[in-house]
Design a protein around this nucleic acid. Structure first.
Lengths: 336, 336
DNA sequence: CTGAAAGCGCTTACAG
DNA sequence: CTGAAAGCGCTTACAG
């Protein structure tokens, strides 16, 4: 274990002060060419790497952005993460992703950990639950936050969401146009804005077409594969639905698996529309129609908003309340 | 922006030294009940949260583990990440995931960033390229590393891999038993051990069955959807294969999409076997046969090995060289 | 054009 | 049983 070089070592070797070394590294004040050269030379010889931790401790900046996802195994979030990371990199930031597992306690811990490391901003798809801890946090230690996919109740902030109501509306209207009247829905976790909104769109489309809303057709899932399977089974056994709308990708796979298992033909016996598009949605049996979210645009827009928050001075940030809605697209394949 | 409480504030309020507060927090030496109570009370009143950054700077420990994945949008890695995070959490660690995008320069940067934040260990699926920077890094600043999925050339360390050769062997043998002799393969990125090994298994199975290896049947991909599509097209147009083995999940989706697009029936016209199992592999047209990796076990085993490295004293770590091979499973569905 | 020095918020030998 | 103080490796007003 060789001693690792510090800024002091570099300063001594170059015969300058640590201040000068620091300014050479960060380009934070003018340094004459000749001393600059000496410093750079010394850094090379010592193989010096600035310790970011110490630097963050002092400057309260890290060039790191945190992204708290509710499910690291959900393609939707990792797809967005991919684009966020790309955008961030261009601007000199790194992205650290962590997984709350849809648990507000985990999420809170991760917020604290991230803040303790002086991340310059946090992107979060908030789990269900009371987020009032955020206002306390931000009182003490301002850190820009952007909400994504959903937003917490009663908390101001900027959110990048999708036109969930309209997305559902398009799907259900399509079913109706095809003659369906008995349309089931499997929603995501309750207590999340996107769940609520997607259900709203379903109800609105039915109401606008004078089709009564039947509670038996509405199933509340947990966004995982298994509940998609199980709830589809319940709908098939207990109701006479001819169409099914599943508002989350993993549950939709579960739904299709059940229908395939039971040799229920899609779309002839039951038509189906899912949420979120993926490469594999084209090769399912039959190819799946979906309401698709613009993950690239979501990623880009998220970074853009975050950057503008980071650049603003602290006083202005607290009261920003802004919701951006991105457009969903209805991709019709063969399942409906 | 309220002033955030520090350990000094707590110490003053409680009428003790910062040393005592620190020891109460970390339980690092005995503190009498009465003073302990005073300290805890003061912490509560001030809503004190220890600054982990400062603590890490001093103690060189963070309770954070870094995970560098080569593709954040690949279900295989995020599936593993899910289990790693779960295991780590039980042991009091947090997981920060970052994405190298199969680029060694990115990976190196992320290593540095992670180390600069005194992560207690790093898990990495190394990108293609020269990893000698790792030995320099570890000379200066020892940090346990576990390699996963692949391992870098000429670098000692512990690796959690899968029996790739055998996995391929099983797939190809199955094809041969079904009467196939013209078997194509699409591999992942060159320069990665798993790619090499999976190709080896393919060649070995052919050789053991006295089937000549034809270079025209071997296509080198880049692990992404598009190359799966494109290379399948090339194989179909330029060769007479009756079976296709795709050694990566995203490329396999591309391959199936091409075959479906061209109405080439699976498995009658061309049989297909993929790598990695997913929920959606059961609902493709037809359901996909795959060589499945035990992602849960991989995650668990990775954390176990990492923990034992963290606990060992530094001198012993450097020379550890150990490879663990997990078993793949051949899941036969209807595509072969 | 550059330096001396305080300070970020902790931990930890040393001392009693 | 506890404290005074050095120090982790940086940044940054202040001063000249």
């Amino acid at each position: 274990m060789i001693k690792i070089a510090t800024i002091k070592d570099v300063a001594e070797k170059a015969g300058v002060s640590t201040a000068t070394v620091s300014h050479v590294i960060n380009e934070t004040r003018f340094v004459s060419e000749s001393t600059k050269e000496k410093v750079i030379q010394s850094m090379k010889e010592l193989n010096y790497k600035p310790n970011k931790l110490a630097s963050s401790l002092r400057s309260k900046k890290s060039n790191i952005i945190g992204f708290i996802v509710p499910d690291i195994a959900n393609f939707f979030f990792t797809g967005i993460a991919h684009y966020i990371e790309k955008e961030l990199k261009q601007r000199g930031y790194s992205l650290f992703i962590s997984n709350s597992d849809e648990n507000i306690e985990n999420e809170k811990q991760q917020f604290e950990k991230l803040k303790a490391h002086f991340v310059d901003g946090i992107i979060v798809a908030p789990a269900k639950g009371d987020h009032s801890f955020l206002v306390d946090m931000n009182k003490e230690n301002e850190c820009p936050i952007v909400f994504i996919d959903r937003k917490p109740d009663n908390i101001k902030g900027v959110s990048i969401l999708v036109d969930n109501v309209n997305g559902s509306y398009k799907a259900i209207t399509h079913f109706i146009e095809k003659g369906h009247k008995k349309i089931g829905i499997i929603t995501g976790l309750p207590g999340i804005t996107s769940t609520y909104e997607r259900l709203e769109g379903y109800k609105k489309a039915l109401a606008d077409n004078n089709i009564p809303i039947k509670n038996g057709y509405i199933k509340i899932g947990d966004s995982r594969f298994d509940s998609g399977y199980k709830l589809t089974k319940e709908l098939v056994k207990n109701t006479d639905i001819s169409a099914l709308y599943v508002t989350n990708n993993l549950m939709c796979v579960g739904a299709m698996e059940y229908l395939n298992d039971k040799d229920i033909t899609i779309p002839d016996d039951i038509a189906i529309i899912g949420f979120d598009d993926y490469k594999w949605a084209s090769i399912t049996n039959p190819p799946l129609s979906v309401i698709s979210q613009p993950i690239k645009k979501i990623g880009e827009s998220t970074v853009k908003e975050l950057m503008s928050l980071i650049r603003k001075d602290n006083n202005k940030k607290i009261n920003i309340n802004k919701t951006i809605r991105m457009k969903t697209k209805f991709i019709i394949r063969e399942s409906c």
